[in-house]
Write a protein that binds this DNA or RNA. Structure first.
Lengths: 258, 258
DNA sequence: TGTCTATTTCGTAGTTTTTACTAAATAAAA
DNA sequence: TTTTATTTAGTAAAAACTACGAAATAGACA
């Protein structure tokens, strides 16, 4: 969706390709080193920061649509994605504040209040997690900026997106305590320090440097490899990989990570 | 919505009052004695069992809409209600199988495939819990029966409603392990046996008769009253009530009930 | 070749929580 | 008064968790 013709077609005929009245918003969490970030876009029309979002094609499942949206903003496909809540407060979108002139300035197109985009919308929230250093943030049609913010330095957000982030963070952390995470988020082979740091970053709290890895091992989630990694003037850590069978079982039945 | 005129108005102009393309389906769980049940309705048009559902008024929040739907089917308002998942598979509603003749026979009205009701719909799932003996099940406009089924004797269900029940049950049980439940679901004063039986019924598993109540007490959730209840030729149980402060704190911060 | 340093990782003691079970208490019926 | 069913206190053993000390060790550096 880049050419003027495509944009015009989206505005005029989008309701034939997409399901009207329903959108998806994505809380895309990024970690790297010890920092947790979230990806935001700056909406052209209301001149404020929002979660990346989009509409659902009539042929798509919800998770497929969320995956498409996340890929368009980050360049990364097949991320861990989970639905966390659906938002439908009638006042959430503030469609009464629609500004025809701003829209015209930004797109060069005249649309009216009867356009399918300017109507009450219920939004399904998804969160995803990725290594932000591997992403290439890109604004969408409606936005003029797209970048990562430290999770504790998020600017003022439009609509109900602040609440969305809080809900997403809460759901993600509850999930993290009950299911292993890391497959597709760590390299195939990794050290205990690496998975320890990942969990600390996502949970936003300290985990015992010795007991936490021991717990993962005692649950049978990790398989110790004979290889080591040389990373400095000190004892080299062993490499581990996930025991896929135990990992999948834990995803299905749940575990408790303290 | 009972008169023919009201039904006709709903079919022709419902999209003005309700948000099109979005519905709510409710998994209404009922307990009594030691039995867990679920409320189902029998759809007139496809002649099959479904979860009770409905549309969202443009002025309503999602939870308010769910509350209205639950009250219409059970006669009970202000139930514990929680969103569990939103369903949007493009094939979930099978709108291609729409039968104009069946619809005419049931309602006396001719509607076409272009009617707002016959279009792709994304459904927000809520579950609720109530004492089924206090309910008065009532079918809706689209159904000719509405009754409780034992949770392990659910008939074949239409659409994706079997998956919905499974997801609802799973979410409800996970919730139950992490938050206290029972306020508004037990009388103000109750015995340890009563809350023990409620949890066993909802979780579908045995809980230790001595340790489970002790856990609740050690968490400070219950306040022992001086009154007792006489219920047979044996030691009379003490009555308890919830410590509202501790209960609300547990709802907010979570607890672990094993 | 030895020390030094930073980090990994093993071991374990002390504590808390959970689990399983026993037995005392007791209200009403026989 | 005895019997019976249930509530509920008590506790021993097992398991899990926590905190922390110390051994192992790879590379830097003298």
């Amino acid at each position: 969706m880049d050419t003027q013709a495509e944009i015009e077609d989206f505005l005029l005929n989008g309701h034939l390709q997409y399901v009207p009245h329903v959108s998806i918003d994505c809380a895309i969490f990024g970690y790297h080193g010890q920092q947790l970030k979230i990806l935001l876009i700056r909406n052209k029309f209301i001149q404020g920061w929002c979660l990346p979002g989009g509409y659902i094609k009539r042929t798509e499942t919800l998770v497929k649509a969320a995956n498409r949206i996340v890929k368009e903003r980050t360049g990364i496909g097949n991320l861990f994605l989970q639905q966390f809540k659906t938002f439908g407060d009638p006042n959430r979108a503030r469609i009464n504040e629609f500004d025809e002139e701003l829209w015209y300035k930004a797109t060069g197109l005249r649309i009216t209040k009867t356009n399918w985009l300017i109507d009450q919308t219920i939004s399904v929230g998804f969160y995803s997690i990725t290594d932000f250093s591997k992403s290439t943030p890109k604004p969408d049609l409606m936005s003029d900026d797209c970048k990562w913010f430290d999770i504790d330095r998020v600017p003022k957000l439009e609509f109900d997106h602040k609440e969305m982030i809080q809900e997403a963070l809460h759901t993600m952390r509850v999930y993290l305590y009950h299911y292993p995470i890391g497959y597709n988020m760590l390299p195939e082979k990794f050290t205990l320090s690496e998975i320890h740091a990942l969990y600390e970053t996502l949970l936003g709290k300290k985990l015992d440097v010795s007991n936490f890895p021991k717990k993962l091992i005692s649950l049978g989630l990790l398989k110790k490899l004979s290889e080591k990694r040389s990373i400095g003037p000190h004892r080299s850590p062993h490499l581990y990989k996930f025991d896929k069978t135990a990992y999948d079982k834990a995803l299905k039945e749940g575990v408790v990570l303290t």
